[in-house]
Amino acid sequence: MPGVKVSVLLPAAGSGERIGRGPKAFLEVGGKTLLDWALEGFAWADELVVALPPGRNLDVPGIKTVWGGKTRQQSVFNLVQAATGEVVLVHDVARPFVVRAAVERLLDAVRGSGAATLAVPVPDTLVQEASGEYGAVIPREHYRLVQTPQGFRRELLWNAHQKALAEGLEFTDDAQLVRWQGYPVALVEGDRRMFKITYPEDLLLAEGLAQVWSSSPRPR
């Protein structure tokens, strides 16, 4: 984003309860932690800020760190407070593989609208559960799976976080928080390689992609 300072914010304080192997950011795939993969993917950014769990340190030159909160939203609050960029990208470390072309599309959208998130179409048939049975089919063309990073003008996101804190409200992601404030959030074409590691079997998929990522030029 020419002429605009970009800060990438990485909340890495999650406990990783669904995988059950400690803080997710410090799990390894392909010989590197998920946090290491994410830091490499955003090495081009003007500023990198990481929220760490209590007792963890990150001895990486040039990386700014803050303490994480009890929830993701509290961690992002701390990250936005510490950021100095005019534009901030909030990215889940659980999505370790960063596709630069998708991020550039996101930055273009933020430049035009002030708030945007990556998203991909729903590939599977989508149904409503009815007491454990196959219910009504939901038209999947009207739905998207939200990815990160999500991008915002820093002041817009900071104001939204302050208001949510004042009202005691929690949101699942920052795009939802900004939209709650009445500000539109653009949907930008994402990339399926930027999938989220949530369950133990996702680590197997990540190991396979890590091998490809390490043996070929980084996808653009």
Results as ranks from 00 to 15, higher is better:
Ala119Pro: 09
Phe171Tyr: 15
Thr198Gly: 05
Glu155His: 04
Arg144Gly: 02
Met194Cys: 04
Val212Met: 07
Asn159Asp: 12
Arg72His: 15
Pro184Phe: 14
Gln211Glu: 09
Phe26Trp: 10
His161Arg: 15
Leu177Val: 03
Lys5Met: 13
Gly112Phe: 11
Glu189Met: 04
Ala136Asp: 01
Asn78Ala: 07
Leu204Gln: 11
Pro149Cys: 12
Leu27Asn: 14
Ala43Leu: 15
Glu28Val: 15
Pro200Cys: 06
Glu189Ile: 00
Phe171Trp: 05
Gly132Phe: 06
Thr148His: 08
Arg220Thr: 11
Leu157Met: 11
Gln73Met: 13
Ala51Phe: 06
Val110Ile: 03
Pro61Trp: 13
Arg193Gly: 15
Val50Ala: 08
Lys24Tyr: 15
Leu209Thr: 03
Leu9Gln: 08
Val103Trp: 01
Asp202Gly: 02
Leu169Phe: 10
Phe77Ile: 03
Arg144Asp: 01
Ile19Tyr: 10
Ala109Leu: 11
Val80Asp: 04
Ser75Leu: 08
His91Tyr: 09
Arg100Tyr: 04
Pro96Asp: 11
Gly151Phe: 02
Gly114Ala: 01
Gly30Ser: 08
Leu204Ser: 05
Val60Trp: 10
Pro139Cys: 02
Glu129Pro: 11
Thr71Gln: 08
Arg154Tyr: 08
Leu52Gly: 03
Lys32Tyr: 05
Val127Asn: 15
Leu9Met: 09
Ala166Thr: 07
Lys64Ser: 07
Trp44Leu: 10
Pro149Lys: 14
Arg100Pro: 03
Ser215Gly: 07
Met194Ala: 13
Leu35Phe: 14
Val178Phe: 11
Ala109Gln: 12
Ala13Pro: 13
Arg153Ser: 03
Val212Asn: 01
Val146Phe: 10
Val185Tyr: 08
Gln74Ser: 08
Leu203Trp: 06
Tyr183Ile: 13
Thr148Pro: 00
Ala45Thr: 07
Val127Trp: 12
Ala130Gln: 13
Leu187Val: 09
Gly31Met: 15
Pro200Arg: 12
Thr71Lys: 02
Val188Pro: 02
Arg21Lys: 15
Glu86Asp: 13
Pro54Leu: 12
Tyr183Gly: 00
Glu86Tyr: 00
Thr117Cys: 08
Ala160Val: 01
Val29Asn: 14
Thr65Ile: 06
Pro149Gly: 14
Leu107Met: 01
Asp108Gly: 05
Val66Thr: 04
Val212Pro: 00
Val99Leu: 10
Leu79Ser: 04
Gly3Pro: 04
Ala164Ser: 11
Pro219Leu: 07
Lys64Leu: 12
Gly30Tyr: 14
Gly168Ser: 05
Val88Pro: 01
Pro184His: 09
Leu89Tyr: 07
Tyr143Thr: 00
Arg95Gln: 13
Glu17His: 10
Ala83Trp: 02
Asp92Cys: 02
Ser75Pro: 01
Asp173Cys: 12
His161Pro: 01
Ala94Gln: 11
Leu145Tyr: 04
Thr172Cys: 00
Gly132His: 09
Glu28Gly: 05
Asp108Ser: 14
Tyr199Pro: 00
Gly190Pro: 00
Arg111Glu: 11
Pro219Thr: 11
Val87Phe: 12
Gly182Gln: 05
Ala115Asn: 02
Gln211Asn: 00
Ala164Gly: 06
Leu157His: 05
Ser131Arg: 14
Gly41Ala: 13
Gly182Ala: 12
Lys163Met: 10
Glu189Gln: 07
Gly114Glu: 08
Val4Trp: 15
Glu47Ser: 06
Glu141Lys: 11
Gln162Met: 14
Gly31Ala: 09
Phe77Gly: 02
Val137Phe: 10
Arg140Glu: 04
Asp173Val: 05
Ala13Glu: 12
Thr198Cys: 03
